[in-house]
Write a protein that binds this DNA or RNA. Sequence first.
DNA 1: TATAATCGGTTAATCGATTAACCTCCCACG
DNA 2: CGTGGGAGGTTAATCGATTAACCGATTATA
Lengths: 334, 334
Amino acid sequence: MVTIKDVAAHAGVSTATVSYVLNGQGSIPAETQRRVWESVTTLQYHPRHAARAMRGRSHTLGVSIARGYDRLADPTAAEVLAGMADAASQRGLSLLLIPRTDDPAAGCVQVARSGQVDGVVLFDPEHADARLDALVAAGIAHVCIGQVGAVWVTHDVALGMTQAVQHLVHLGHRAIGLIAPDPELVSSDWYVESYMAAMESQGLMVPEGGVLAGGRREADGEAAMAELLALDERITAVIAASDELAYGAMRAIRDAGLVVGRDVSLMGFDDLPPAAYLQPPLTTMRQPRYDMGVAAIGLLEAQVTHATPAQTHLVLAPKLIIRASTGQMVMHDS
Amino acid sequence: MVTIKDVAAHAGVSTATVSYVLNGQGSIPAETQRRVWESVTTLQYHPRHAARAMRGRSHTLGVSIARGYDRLADPTAAEVLAGMADAASQRGLSLLLIPRTDDPAAGCVQVARSGQVDGVVLFDPEHADARLDALVAAGIAHVCIGQVGAVWVTHDVALGMTQAVQHLVHLGHRAIGLIAPDPELVSSDWYVESYMAAMESQGLMVPEGGVLAGGRREADGEAAMAELLALDERITAVIAASDELAYGAMRAIRDAGLVVGRDVSLMGFDDLPPAAYLQPPLTTMRQPRYDMGVAAIGLLEAQVTHATPAQTHLVLAPKLIIRASTGQMVMHDS
DNA sequence: TATAATCGGTTAATCGATTAACCTCCCACG
DNA sequence: CGTGGGAGGTTAATCGATTAACCGATTATA
């Protein structure tokens, strides 16, 4: 293993000089700098990360992704992660996946307290998340993906819901139902409230029993949709709070002998890759996943370096993607 | 920041004793150990990772995921990553996402040479991968996901292809086509050769023009399928080398006015979550993604610790998932 | 009786890089 | 001529943990 001493010896200077050259500090004449850099490249020298980290920061950020319902295998998460990875790389930071142990909160604190990471991104915060409490208690810099805690990044659910309802209203729909997310997810209330507000601003009544807590998986969406179809009041359009819920809802509609986009209009929220390949292709609100990852790293780095975060949260706009699962409302014979 | 000195002072012993207790070495009487551990917990001491890493290993493994066609946002990759994350956690290792810079090869070497990681998982090796060459040249421990290099983990393409062809033959198909992967992917040849072998062992001829290099995305599958449908010889079943290719192929079949599973049987390779929700649901070979991640970490750790790897590669079996996109062959009027 | 091992620890060297403090030489200025 | 000051470095302390070597007293072994 080649160290700074080897470089110093090779270049005929002291280790201090090498260090100054490497870090662009001190007043080293160009000729000496050239010699040092030459030695660095010929010896293939790479400063030891551990030795650097002993003084100052580790230049590594941690990402906490819970187990259980596996967010890591969720394409939504993967895209956010891609954004974080690129943003971190660009700033010369590394990303560490925080070990997924039995006690995630302890894991987050341990990895930060040990100086392995300078800050933590909380990927999938839930209501009363033990990790968040632990990070706050330990005074560790952190950012949440989702509207929770003090510093967070999220997509604009209110704006998305407004656009969704407007889209359906333009198509002539009045009786619009909602399959809400798992109530355990922090954003759940926001979906429901945004939907209510959007309906009200359009002068529409929320159908009785027209708002159902869905869950997370396709099966949950299927069950919820079946319930919505059984209501007294005929619902002509449904907004699912995620694409995955919409997949299930679509199946339920088909199983009921109805046609998606004609008898019942259906919208998702996500725009996952397969959405365009469903039959019919799914109208959905595309979330700015990649950008959320980028933004999260930005907020976290600001916290780590400046201690006084200029910005505590960021709300990024989603985008309405119109496909064939929503269509003009048609009159039915009663 | 609480250090080992603080713990030593609090427990009334030397720092060496604390270190021995922490690492379970030396012969420290139970009573002293108790005192030390008590101090550790009351002071909330976490050993500095950097200081530990200065001597010995960093206990961190790197994962290199290329940019471009974004594997990180690919659900296939995410599940492998989940397996790696869990396996690493279980062994007390951390996982570092290697910064995605302009020169990935340099990045891999840098992160290992600097001691930030003890070894590297090459996620998406391609033919003549610069990263692989660089890792070999630098003598850095590494494992590839996919059959390339000296140490690797993969799913059993040959077995999968055999089962796929058998399945189709049982349904009465004889003219079976293949939409192969992007030729740039290392496993591409393996798919084609396995398909050939499977056909031969079933006593079948490969239809002329029945093997097409697909690509990676849905659109590639769509184009390839359109070509297959235009062949002189009527092809009644098609194996796509990935689910994503199958999505596109399905669309092409529909666009040609044919019914998937009746006029043309179609198989994928992956079993991504949406496969079950396509219309019709997709018959496919489920890849042992999670287990591949687990296995990769195992092979890499063995390399890092024992220097002489007991095992250099692992081939995991896929599983045939039969759904409605494949069906009994029906006779057509010519 | 001489030698060696055990006990419960301690002391101090060490890992590799950073950086404050200092050193020497040389030139300019009063 | 003496002094100040910059240019171009060097020396050595430091970060926090690990670990080989060692301590003196006691007991077991040859």
